[in-house]
């Protein structure tokens, strides 16, 4: 019987994730409106993409550094991995830099939250179906839903756990987005919940540890600290509730 797991699924679902995320973004932007004009929105999207590329590659290399060492020359070569957390944090940082350069003060991330949830969830299907070829599988387990990805050992299907988590988070964000909320709150809630989730779920992934946490978890700790600092810094702004549709 042919195996369900094959590495070719990964790029297919990754591409579908990008497409699904973009379609959800377009739909939300059309339905809810955008605090930024078209031109500025696209500058921020381009900055996000470039920042995500750099961040995902950088953290992908750092993730494997405890085992394989860190090699800068691999940054632009095809080998090595990439990580969602690095992409999120790199994209976020790039947007903040672009906003500062352009003098944009409006919170701009709310429209990205639900598309990111959908895109990552679709991509995780590919991670699951890629089996052992993708480094996102869990540690061995004796639980009845443990999945044999091809090495004969039942493992935690961490990709499916994340799919369920993102479905719940997406539903919560969608509900919250339909109610009046302070600008930027939806994105920060998404980021905080996702980073906290990754700290939790990565404990059952067989990744090399540095002082008790893997590099992705350390990046999540840094990201959560930045979210908390941003929330503290903009606490006055949080009093200003944004009606739905802006």
């Amino acid at each position: 019987m042919p195996s369900l797991f094959h590495p070719e699924w990964h790029p297919l679902f990754e591409a579908l994730g990008y497409i699904a995320g973009y379609l959800v973004f377009r739909h939300l932007r059309h339905r809810l409106g955008d605090p930024l004009p078209e031109d500025r929105r696209w500058i921020l999207i381009a900055a996000t993409a470039v920042g995500a590329l750099v961040g995902s590659r950088l953290l992908g290399l750092l993730e494997q550094a405890p085992q394989a060492g860190f090699h800068w020359d691999e940054f632009l070569t095809p080998g090595g991995g990439k990580t969602i957390v690095g992409g999120l944090l790199g994209g976020w940082l790039a947007v903040e830099i672009a906003k500062r350069l352009l003098g944009i003060r409006a919170r701009s991330g709310d429209l990205f939250a639900l598309p990111l949830c959908v895109g990552i969830a679709v991509g995780r299907i590919g991670c699951f179906l890629a089996g052992m070829a993708d480094d996102t599988y869990g540690t061995p387990t004796s639980l009845p839903w443990g999945v044999d990805f091809g090495d004969g050992t039942p493992r935690h299907p961490t990709q499916l756990y994340e799919l369920l988590f993102l479905s719940a988070l997406g539903f919560m964000l969608w509900r919250a987005g339909n109610r009046p909320h302070p600008p930027g709150r939806i994105f920060r809630v998404f980021l905080a919940f996702y980073l906290a989730w990754r700290i939790f779920i990565d404990f059952i992934k067989p990744q090399p540890l540095v002082h008790g946490l893997n590099m992705i978890q350390w990046a999540c700790v840094v990201g959560l600290t930045a979210v908390a600092a941003g929330e503290w810094h903009g606490r006055g702004e949080a009093q200003r509730v944004q009606p739905v549709g802006q």
Binding site: P11, V50, G79, G81
Partner: peptide, 25 residues
């Protein structure tokens, strides 16, 4: 141009994934 840069960068991220997976296998 920003649309072109954004979509091209997304393509590059995907390309890194494809080649990285192949290099891993």
């Amino acid at each position: 141009p920003m649309k072109v840069i954004a979509f091209s960068t997304a393509g590059l991220i995907l390309a890194f994934g494809l080649c990285g997976l192949d290099a891993h296998l």
